[in-house]
Write a protein that binds this DNA or RNA. Structure first.
Lengths: 155, 155
DNA sequence: CAGAACTATTTGCACAAGCAGATATGCCGC
DNA sequence: GCGGCATATCTGCTTGTGCAAATAGTTCTG
């Protein structure tokens, strides 16, 4: 049984490291984007996901998966961004249950100006994490990953 | 400028992968622990962090760092667990601002029975993620990490 | 020792998230 | 075309979170 325990402890330890690094990056991005552009990380993620779509539009549920949110949370998130004029909703003709969201010019513009801060914060946080002994190996591993396709979670 | 953009896109892509895997594991653990033991992932994390401490006690702020929570969230989390009899609060003699929390026997018992489900869920989720092309490399990288010391975030 | 500056914890408040249920639409067999 | 079932989105409600301010205790300075 010792062998099983060891394997479980290795996984648990890896999970703790993953969670720690995730939390570090997430809160750094959250603070930076919130302070400068009044955007949460999920909101940025949604804008960014939309910008990577051909035609810049997506259905609510695709969005929910891309942002790892429930559909109710997605509804409200889209409503918030819509009220700020960053994206628009419109019915889709072929399936009238579905609703497409589309980036407005203002949404694209906000993303354009926010992206440098996002990227710089990400870089700075990763650099900082590389100096923390417990996180460094994971940071290196991340760096060595092959660039993943557009939507890791959207499959 | 193309080179910088590439580097930024590699980091962004790694971050998306990290977030996706984190979300996957987190929600799987959340559902499993919540359904069986009425414990959230953070609550489990706190119990587990306490169990790894010599003497099973920690100050609120250590706990806050270990769980990556604000101090107010920590206060309420500890209150919830205290009401369920899983841990106790007591003043610490040398610094009377500080409050120690300590696992009760019931807390240790709950952790003992919950840990197998936690570990099994973690294993199952990682195994599942290894079949998702975008996540597989990160899963492998995690597995190859050297076992990190007790508290990756607590430093 | 008095007062200022700092640290630890708790409370008031506002907000975003999930679940369950409601509503509308699509699809299938008959 | 009609009931029955699945899918997409939205709404009501509860809960957990962070920020800012309040409170209590420590430490440093003169």
């Amino acid at each position: 049984m010792g062998i099983q325990d060891d394997a479980a402890e290795i996984r648990a330890s890896g999970w703790r490291t993953l969670a720690a690094l995730h939390g570090l990056i997430d809160s750094a991005l959250e603070k930076a984007l919130q302070a400068e552009y009044r955007l949460s990380v999920v909101e940025y993620t949604v804008l960014e996901a939309l910008s990577r779509q051909d035609g810049w539009h997506m259905r609510m549920q695709q969005l929910a998966r891309a942002a790892a949110l429930s559909s109710s949370a997605t509804t409200r998130l889209v409503s918030r961004l819509e009220e700020r004029g960053l994206l628009g909703r419109y019915l889709c003709a072929d399936d009238r249950r579905g609703i497409y969201t589309e980036l407005t010019p203002q949404g694209r513009e906000l993303l354009r100006v926010a992206r440098p801060l996002h990227d710089a914060t990400l870089e700075a946080t990763l650099t900082g994490a590389a100096d923390v002994p417990e996180l460094a190996p994971l940071v290196r591993a991340l760096h060595d990953l092959e660039p993943a396709p557009a939507s890791p979670a959207g499959a």
